[in-house]
Simulated scan of single mutants.
Amino acid sequence: MAETMSPAIERTVPRVLMCAPTFFEVSYVINPWMTDHVHDTTSERSRRQWDALRDTVSRHADVALQPAAEGLPDMCFAANAGLVFGNTFVPSRFRYAERQGEEAHARAWFSRHGFDIVDIAEDVFFEGAGDALFDRGVSRRLWMGHGHRSDPAAASELATRLDIEVIPLKLADPRFYHLDTCFCPLVDGYTLYFPGAFDAASLASIEKHIAPHLRIPVSEHDALDFACNAVNLGKVVILNRAGPDLRSRLEGAGFMLIEVALDEFMKSGGAAKCLTLRLDEVTGV
């Protein structure tokens, strides 16, 4: 995307930000997925998988690219740059020092491309669209995960700054450290989620706000294959892998599934959704 392009809010084609895995590797441990994979990735394999994801997303959306930065191996996980809502960008404030260097690069990119930068309080950790997901069936509703990376206080911060209803969800399983690893709102109000990732109160909140026929719970096996870490573009769902039962349920709801192998990135705790950030987020679509 040309540097002079500014964000267009009213578009029929989705816009997605990605960042090439030029410097991707597992060089530290900040989540359970990384524990056995330090220095266990290859640049050729990760680039091939990322290219396949970019090409797949490009068939259903306009893809913009953020330059990678040396020394920031997780910068390819674009979802964590921040949260986009209309023309507003809320930058992330990372919990771990290993990722804090990404913040200045994200702020600069979004400023160059004409977004309004809106900060939350300096003492609140918030990890962007990894932990903040817009409902795609109800207007002005945001689901926000907390418990491992983002602070609970981020919910009220986002509600105030974006003038939106925010429903906090406590993440109880460290393997699912960001909300987008275990929860995925889909168009028409459908929602993929792994019940075992949430505490009892949060699971009750999900069941209260999402009608039974719109809830698509996934098995632990599918969750560990990062089936919930999916990119939803209209009726297309792009993910690492889905078992036969989950595929049948999604296709029965009218979705077309596209699997893209992303096991190299799963060594760092991410897959399709983690590698993308919607640039045209408005609720209810």
Rank of each mutant, 00 (worst) to 15 (best):
M1A: 13
M1S: 15
S6V: 14
S6K: 14
P7W: 03
P7D: 04
I9G: 12
E10D: 11
R11G: 07
V13F: 03
R15D: 08
R15L: 05
V16W: 00
M18Q: 09
A20S: 15
F23D: 13
V26T: 07
N31M: 02
N31F: 02
P32S: 04
D36S: 14
D36C: 09
V38H: 05
H39C: 11
R45A: 15
S46N: 01
R48I: 12
Q49P: 14
A52I: 13
L53W: 00
D55R: 09
V57R: 02
S58R: 07
H60Q: 10
A61H: 01
D62P: 09
A64I: 08
L65G: 07
L72E: 10
D74R: 01
D74A: 04
C76K: 02
A79F: 11
L83G: 14
L83V: 10
F85T: 10
F85K: 02
N87P: 10
T88I: 15
V90L: 10
R95N: 12
A97M: 11
A97K: 14
E102C: 02
E103S: 12
H105R: 13
H105E: 12
R107D: 11
W109R: 09
S111V: 09
G114N: 03
D116C: 05
I120E: 11
A121H: 08
E122W: 01
E122Y: 01
V124A: 04
F125D: 11
F126W: 07
F126M: 11
A129E: 11
G130M: 06
L133S: 12
F134E: 02
F134I: 05
M144Q: 11
M144L: 15
M144N: 06
G145T: 03
R149C: 10
S150A: 04
D151L: 04
P152N: 08
A153Y: 02
S156N: 12
E157P: 13
E157A: 07
L158R: 07
T160M: 08
L162D: 07
I164R: 00
E165Q: 02
P168E: 04
A172Q: 08
P174D: 14
P174R: 07
F176Q: 10
H178Y: 10
D180L: 01
C182N: 03
C184N: 08
C184K: 00
P185I: 11
V187E: 04
T191H: 06
T191Y: 00
L192R: 09
Y193S: 06
P195D: 08
P195K: 04
P195L: 04
D199Q: 05
D199I: 01
D199V: 02
E207W: 03
A211C: 02
P212F: 00
P212K: 06
L214Q: 12
L214D: 03
E220G: 13
H221W: 05
H221Q: 13
C228W: 00
C228D: 05
A230D: 03
G234L: 03
K235F: 05
V237Q: 04
I238E: 02
L239I: 00
A242T: 13
R249G: 03
R249Y: 00
R249A: 00
L250Q: 01
E251I: 13
E251Y: 02
G252P: 09
A253V: 05
G254L: 06
G254R: 08
A261P: 13
M266H: 06
K267A: 09
S268K: 06
S268R: 06
G269Q: 12
A271S: 15
A272L: 03
K273Q: 14
C274V: 02
L275C: 10
L275M: 15
T276R: 10
T276G: 12
L279T: 00
E281F: 01
